[in-house]
Amino acid sequence: DATQGTAGDCQPCPCPVGATCAVVPKTREVVCTNCPAGTTGKRCELCDDGFFGDPLGQNGAVRTCRACKCSNNMDPNAVGNCNRESGECLKCIYNTAGFFCDRCKEGFYGNAQAANPADKCKPCSCSPFGTVDRQTGCSQVTGQCECLPNVAERDCSACQPGFFNLHSGNGCQRCDCNPIGSTN
């Protein structure tokens, strides 16, 4: 307030070099108004949308604002792709998930960081008959579903040799064929 007639009437803006500031009349709060490129916030402490970092080092070392890092599993046409401070990815695509969209989401398996989207994450597609509790999830890496007793295949879709009745829902039963009269 420049009208009080004291030496402390005008104080420097609590903002990075180059920024201007203003006082919210109602709350007397000081807000920076022209933050340096790529930054925003009351004190220019935040990164613009699509970037993350800690430009003022409020929570540790100064981290300049960088573009969201989401393992090429985000779409540049989307908004709010990552948390502006931590960089946590918020809009993973191609069936990926995780802090950096670096793994497959639940119900998918494969390599989230493969170069070609088609090679990234494939659906587990576990057989409901051969899978424990009809689970839909599988091993992130191998894609192996959790099979009931004597059930085979990645997706638990077949009985092991010498077993039958996958559709029982309790695993496969031994064939119990007479070894003398059977060909296998």
Binding site: V31, C32, T33, T40, G41, K42, V79
Partner: peptide, 12 residues
């Protein structure tokens, strides 16, 4: 001119 400024927000 600015109409309003909510420094912590991202308005779409």
């Amino acid at each position: 001119k600015p109409l309003l400024h909510l420094p912590e927000k991202v308005i779409i």
